[in-house]
Design a binder for these strands. Sequence first.
DNA 1: GGACGGAATTGATCAAGATCAACACGCTCC
DNA 2: GGAGCGTGTTGATCTTGATCAATTCCGTCC
Lengths: 247, 247
Amino acid sequence: MPRRHSSRRIDLAQIKTACSTCSLHELCLPAGLDARDMERVDGVVKLRRRIKRGEYLYRTGTKLDALFAVRSGFLKSCVVYEDGREQVTGFHMMGEVVGLDAISQERHTCDTIALEDSELCEIPYARLEDLTRDIPSLQRHFHRMMSREIVRDQGVMLLLGSMRAEERLATFLTNLSQRFASRGYSAQEFHLRMTREEIGSYLGLTLETVSRVFSRFQEDGLIEVHSKHIRITDVARLRGLVAQQAP
Amino acid sequence: MPRRHSSRRIDLAQIKTACSTCSLHELCLPAGLDARDMERVDGVVKLRRRIKRGEYLYRTGTKLDALFAVRSGFLKSCVVYEDGREQVTGFHMMGEVVGLDAISQERHTCDTIALEDSELCEIPYARLEDLTRDIPSLQRHFHRMMSREIVRDQGVMLLLGSMRAEERLATFLTNLSQRFASRGYSAQEFHLRMTREEIGSYLGLTLETVSRVFSRFQEDGLIEVHSKHIRITDVARLRGLVAQQAP
DNA sequence: GGACGGAATTGATCAAGATCAACACGCTCC
DNA sequence: GGAGCGTGTTGATCTTGATCAATTCCGTCC
């Protein structure tokens, strides 16, 4: 496990290579930073951290040191009860930032685990705080990121609170599809990184129900399922199952 | 409807009276501000806004101008579908700040409605952003507020995703009780401001189920229910129904 | 104070999805 | 390539909470 702050001097060129995806794509580009500010951000974003499938990025209760931008790979976050039950609260892919929940108590409130080998950029929180103070557009972007997380959670509440099984699955698949598409991957065809059980936990269903609804969707010609490989064959009809929020 | 920015000059003394609760309790005190910074915050927090029961504080899609600190009263937020379905995403009481969801798109993503006559302090978002830049402890506090909202949402996901009806109600009552207690009201006895239907929507249940579980709790001697008036008669046993998150 | 209407309670029935169970598929590791 | 386990599928049955329906309660407005 790498010691934090062990080397204060950072090789900018190396960082640029290491972090161009997350700091540029996730922190700098959307914030509209100029080149000088980008360098400052790169100076703060630490070298990437790699974790293998099944490993924890962080655990409930551990101290918040840094936020993480996902550079590659796929992760899940889940809240664990003392009685052993477990609720998946989100899946994270390239370009997303995790750890925002930990700011409130400076302790993580969920476990985050890699579902496939992943690379992340570590963003020391204390230094990010300083930077957002100096760079207004970064501050604004950071606030938006947190707010976006709140909106996303609203969407999940909606899903869990008022949708039936088929609607939940359709919403889930549509959402995944859009996230893949916005990253330059195919919107029609993708690999699920998570098990049926993890999908079920996220959607408030059992793994059997998830499996059954997948089969039903396949019979209806909406998708083709080959274990974890999904092909959406009728986007329009799948979208039709997804309830939209009023304007 | 009061015009915004109509009077830039603000009477500090008047604001102190109007906003001492929200700006001191919700923005300044937890942030540990000194007197000078408090005055600066008070200079930004606008005079209180009063809304009557049933009135909207804001609607989905309208532009974000300000966050609101609840000074008195009680409100609900809910997401509305185009097909008319409605999901309550939260209830808000004195000392809480609403509108954080709107930062991401600068548009509100839910409706927020007063369940009883309420007073709020309006905090113009643009000016708050400036202030947090100048006052690090306020910045930190603001980040924590947003993060706390994310953690709260995690809790709701947990509730909707993995709890059964009785557990949901017990969690809901316990949470309300704690929020009342931390504001100096009785933790044992309180008035519900919302209908059974609104509770049901929030908890992902029907109003009939909410009513039945209340009755069951009463038969079991956990609570006394007189319509909207609730008395918790066996706190320990009610708490026992609430699953705890692992450490 | 009485009439009205929304809110709450309670009962009877139904259905979606959970649970239990058996088996098939497909990786991974020898 | 085969053994073995984790993962996924499918079927049968059960349970929880939804739905439908009938009153009752209570607050509000004349």
